[in-house]
């Protein structure tokens, strides 16, 4: 009896493992439904033109209501590139269904705001079957090069960066000029690949109760860190940080 049970247990385990891996391998993050743009087509589309994309939610800023209209900003990616979805129209109920990796179809307009290419405010979202989570791409050696912009909005990691002191010796500031308080965005500078860059903890993405926010508050100038986040752009690269590992 025990033997039978053990065999059954092994079988169940094996089956479930196969199921999981099957799901992972069956999801091709570059494949598109009919009428949906490939990433290359999206990339080539003119600003202010209508775009229809299929993509996978990697992270999301909080849902909010504006004059009765639910809105949310999403960091999304497919197998070929990333899409920043700014203030899409979405109900709170649907927003809550958007777990990490959730496949969605987005219809909206392509726009650019201070260098950040995005799907503009007011896009609509359909939740589709499918999940895929992107691996962070190491862009350390791309920093300071013209190639960097190709990774805009993607999940990226910068390795072996050195935390630089701000003007007042602090390792980070609340708000860009230190005018803020705990709970506001955090800004810190790092040196990597022979350049200095400002990284941001966007409080709507990673609030003061998150591990990464606390890790940023614990930063010390001179320390070496690996930083993971999304390659947001504002007049130049300004990654939104989601993970900090102190070496």
């Amino acid at each position: 009896m025990k033997k039978v049970l053990a065999i059954m247990l092994i079988l169940v385990l094996a089956l479930s493992a196969t199921a999981c891996s099957g799901k992972k391998s069956s999801e091709d993050p570059t494949k598109k439904s009919e009428g949906v743009m490939t990433y290359a087509e999206y990339d080539a589309a003119a600003l202010d033109s209508e775009v229809v994309i299929e993509t996978y939610v990697q992270a999301k800023q909080g849902w909010w209501e504006d004059n009765g209209q639910g809105k949310a900003t999403l960091y999304t990616q497919d197998g070929d590139g990333a899409y920043f979805i700014y203030n899409a129209y979405i109900s709170e109920e649907d927003y809550n269904k958007l777990g990490e990796g959730q496949k969605i179809k987005v219809t909206g307009y392509k726009a650019e705001w201070s260098g950040e290419v995005e799907v503009a405010e007011g896009a609509t979202i359909e939740i589709e079957d499918g999940k895929w989570v992107a691996e962070a791409v190491d862009i350390t050696d791309k920093l300071g090069t013209d190639e960097l912009i190709k990774y805009q909005n993607q999940k990226v990691v910068v390795k072996g960066a050195t935390v630089e002191a701000k003007e007042d010796g602090a390792a980070f500031w609340y708000n860009w000029d230190n005018s803020g308080v705990q709970g506001d965005d955090i800004y810190f500078d790092v040196t990597a690949n022979m350049g200095t860059y400002t990284f941001t903890l966007e409080s709507y993405l990673t609030g003061s109760d998150t591990d990464v926010y606390k890790a940023a508050e614990a930063l010390e100038a001179g320390k070496t860190i690996d930083v993971e986040g999304y390659l947001y752009w504002y007049e130049g690269p300004q990654p939104h940080v989601t993970k900090i590992t102190v070496k």
Binding site: N175, W176, D177, N178, S179, G180
Partner: peptide
Amino acid sequence: KNDTNKTQT
């Protein structure tokens, strides 16, 4: 309210 201006703070 400040205009993200440290001097105002």
